[in-house]
Amino acid sequence: MLDDDEIERLIAATALDDRAAFNALYTATSAKLFGVVLRVLNNRNAAEETLQDVYIKIWHNAGRYQVNGLSPMTWLITIARNTAIDARRRKTREADGDLHEMLADSAPGPENRMSEGSGHARLSACFAELEPDRAGAVRRAYLDGKSYAELAAQYGVPLNTMRSWLRRSLLNLWECLGR
């Protein structure tokens, strides 16, 4: 995996329609993004189709990367995850929950970036402070793209209970992350 600066450079070149840079970006990141998409869709054929959509979005939206203020891997992972969840929900026609293009958030400035390693360690420590069930539900909500309704069914609790669990856990995480 290339470092953040290199990936950022490839995204910037992709925004200028540089196909060689786009290919290099694909080579450097497709295995990670395929993993992310597979995790949500849990189906190889669907994941392969969706991964194409992901890179097509990346090509078209590379010029918007800077204005999002996200670190490059976060931006790519968010596109992959959201596209996969979109595909899954479109397929299951599930009404509950919605998903948003992070692309739509024209947030400025690259402040508050963290290096991947330290961010992960910090986050893991904070997840460890949550009750195991609740930590698991938050992880599933993010990694599997599960809705409140799906999580409630999975954990055998009413939807409102699941919602309070998650919301309380988010607040605990926020406090733990020291903000």
């Binding site: 497709s30 295995a31 990670k32 986050l123 992880r139």
Partner: peptide
């Protein structure tokens, strides 16, 4: 978004066809 993206570090990369 940055925080949650860290969770994806637990996902094993897998080379697509």
């Amino acid at each position: 978004t940055e925080d949650f993206a860290c969770l994806a570090e637990d996902i094993e990369p897998e080379t697509p066809p």
